[in-house]
Amino acid sequence: MMDSSVKIINEWDIVAARQLGRNVAKELGFGTVDQARITTAISELARNIYLYAGQGEITIEKVENGAKKGMTIVSRDEGPGIPDLRKVMEDGFSTSGGLGAGLPGVKRLMDEFSIESTPGEGTLIQSVKWLR
């Protein structure tokens, strides 16, 4: 079992987080398309922390579930939280004036996705990609 985390404080940490993710994905034997999916998902999550929470942490873990192997990406912050989760998971919703890909995009890139958020306390997003 290997865990690694990257603290997200400034823009460069986004690059550090996705590089770590890409290396772990490569090591686990993910194909090029899944590597791109994982790297992109991490980039989106890390950027959300940077933009909305100010700071937080991306943790990458290898997981095993019976015969299945994969990796988990956990994004944790103690930012303002998300008041309306349903709205944020709708396509095209973005509060930063970006392309609005955000969280629904991450959900599509990964195999499993869950989000918990308490306004005023922070947000925890867990997602898993399984090795095919």
Partner: peptide, 10 residues
């Protein structure tokens, strides 16, 4: 791989 992730991101 880039094309696929872009499409999946929407």
């Amino acid at each position: 791989a880039v094309a696929i992730t872009l499409i999946e991101l929407g």
